[in-house]
Design a binder for these strands. Structure first.
Length: 232
DNA sequence: AGACAGGGTCGTT
DNA sequence: AACGACCCTGTC
């Protein structure tokens, strides 16, 4: 029995895990476009940074809805993103001869998306021209996994996150460098397993709820101190 | 103070 | 199949 499973023999740890799982309720996202753009902006990025970027995007281009408790902004529509600029260079109007870069505010990069701005832009084009996001719901997981990767900025990791969090494909096992380190440590005696292999392993081992187990493994790694150990 | 890596993806060898 | 570039922010 490996460390992950034996960890759960402790009643207190088990109770904590159960509590964690009770809090886990993954639903299908209402707004698929929002799910896609948000997913793209997570790639090679920190949580703090991408959430800030999304908030700013909504504040800039979403519709403001006022409540007594405060203001709220909707996620902008595809064609709204289509009509804004990727960066300040593109946005700048050279024809008036005033080179004030600070006047450029109608672009994605001001939200802090960085190089992901071009993916977001291309992805938006893609939906207006070639792909209908609602079709994904009708596919099986494997087909959806392949299809979704045709979207610019969407590789295997982002695809699985999108399918898990956006479309509620619970069998998706999003595999990134951290889950690779965790899985390598727990199940492969620290052998360096490639990310695609980790994904395969996760899906084989954990089956139809692999997506939940992925979250569960992260929780375990943080709680048990494994995460800190792997960071060294 | 300045280098460096980070919850990947893409384009090029 | 392997490698470097890429925005930008936090960290050493």
């Amino acid at each position: 029995m490996n460390k992950f499973y034996s960890y759960l023999n402790d009643n207190e740890k088990l109770a904590d895990m159960a509590n964690f799982c009770n809090g886990l309720r993954l639903f299908e996202a209402k707004n698929k476009f929002e799910a896609v753009i948000s997913s793209i902006s997570t790639s090679n990025n920190s949580i703090a940074r991408w959430t800030k970027s999304i908030d700013m995007l909504k504040k800039k281009w979403g519709l403001k809805v006022s409540y007594p408790s405060g203001d709220f902004y909707t996620f902008p529509d595809v064609n709204v993103i289509n009509s804004c600029f990727e960066d300040s260079e593109e946005e700048f109007d050279y024809s008036n001869g005033i080179l004030d870069i600070n006047k450029c505010n109608n672009n994605l990069k001001t939200c802090g998306f960085g190089y992901r701005s071009k993916y977001i832009k291309k992805a938006s084009d893609f939906f207006t021209l070639e792909m209908d996001l609602s079709d994904i719901s009708e596919m099986n997981y494997e087909e959806a996994f392949e299809t979704v990767q045709m979207i610019p900025g969407v590789g295997p990791k982002v695809a699985d996150c999108l399918l898990l969090y956006g479309y509620n494909f619970k069998e998706a096992f999003p595999s990134d460098v951290w889950i690779k380190r965790i899985v390598s440590h727990l199940f492969f005696d620290n052998e360096d397993i490639s990310i695609p292999k980790v994904r395969e392993f996760g899906m084989e081992e954990f089956g139809e709820y692999a997506g939940y187990v992925q979250l569960y493994l992260f929780h375990y790694a943080r709680k048990s101190g494994l995460m800190d150990k792997l960071k060294k």
